[in-house]
């Protein structure tokens, strides 16, 4: 009877397993195999040998190293900042009574807006052309500063725009999650803490923060993963030739290796993809370990 049930269980799982196998497990294994096939030619489906050359090539490729550096800077700057801003805005949203729904909608709008359309808006804000300095430069000039070319100028200016843009684009989702997390904290805990003599800041630090900590860690973990996989944001701002702009990301590099002007190297792309996979896996494991220690219930 028990074995009969087991068979039935597997039968029910079969459709899902088939799809997962075909579209997830098989490609993953395939990528792993590609990454070790040296001199693979996708047209003739041939390769010279098996080894780690693809990895050593990618890890020595200056374009990959630049992309790696860009990605890490992007992750380190945008994840903490966007989570912090989202928390501040959610706290503010949680404390307003009037027009709360309106504000919530306004803050959520960027989430439903297309990435490339937002990129266009950012171009107007930041791009310096022969005809205009761009909105932000006008502001800088107004305060007495000199114009900066944010799109085709120095590295830090471009990185600033990219981080700004990334934070702006991920903020709505984080705000949505955090406002609902804040709203779900039992009101009585705040009352109890007040009666127990806690000040507003103490209540935030000792009650609110621990109570929403599971959601904060969820956002940090998914934020890290999302930022490591960033690509479209960079394209939206700097166009498709990211290597020339010096603003490539790891996923951008993988794309270029596959389809770009210098593309046609699926083995290098696979190796880079696996390197990215290992990085994300490591960071996520570290995150989970930290959250086990600090998220209390």
């Amino acid at each position: 009877m028990i074995s009969g049930n087991k068979a039935k269980g597997w039968l029910y799982l079969l459709p899902a397993l088939l799809f997962l196998g075909a579209f997830m497990v098989y490609p993953l294994i395939d990528v792993l195999i590609y990454s070790f096939e040296e001199g693979y030619n996708s047209a003739s489906q041939t390769f010279f040998g098996v080894g780690t050359y693809n990895y050593s090539y990618v890890l020595r490729d200056p374009y990959f190293l630049a992309a790696l550096k860009n990605t890490i800077i992007l992750v380190i700057i945008t994840v903490p900042l966007s989570t912090g801003f989202a928390l501040l805005i959610s706290l503010a949203l949680n404390s307003v009574r009037k027009l709360k729904n309106l504000f919530q909608t306004v803050y959520f709008l960027p989430y439903v807006t297309n990435t490339l359309a937002v990129g266009l808006v950012f171009m107007i804000l930041f791009k310096k052309t022969a005809y205009t300095e761009g909105m932000v430069n006008l502001l800088i000039n107004w305060f007495g500063g000199s114009s900066v070319d944010f799109i085709d100028g120095p590295y830090w200016a471009k990185m600033f725009v990219l981080c700004f843009y990334t934070i702006w684009i991920v903020l709505p989702f984080k705000i949505l999650i955090l406002t609902s997390a804040l709203a779900s904290v039992n009101e009585d805990l705040y009352k109890a803490a007040k009666i127990d003599g806690a000040s507003g800041f103490t209540i935030f630090r000792k009650i609110t923060l621990p109570m929403i900590s599971p959601m904060i860690f969820y956002l940090v973990i998914t934020g890290f993963i999302g930022a490591f996989k960033a690509y479209s944001d960079s394209v939206a701002l700097f166009g498709t030739d990211l290597n020339a702009a010096g603003m490539n990301t790891i996923v951008g590099y993988i794309y270029d290796m596959l389809y770009g002007n210098s593309g046609g190297f699926p083995s290098y792309a696979s190796a880079a993809a696996l390197i990215l996979f290992v990085i994300v896996l490591t960071i996520t494991c570290i995150n989970l370990m930290i959250s086990r220690k600090n998220v209390h219930y």
């Binding site: 009585d188 805990l189 109890a192 007040k194 806690a198 009650i207 621990p210």
Partner: peptide, 21 residues
């Protein structure tokens, strides 16, 4: 006087214990 300065003790219907402590 705000509650924190009244110095009363209160037990809530659902106890309102801090679940993380």
């Amino acid at each position: 006087l705000p509650p924190e300065n009244r110095g009363v003790g209160m037990v809530f219907q659902n106890y309102a214990l801090y679940p993380h402590l």
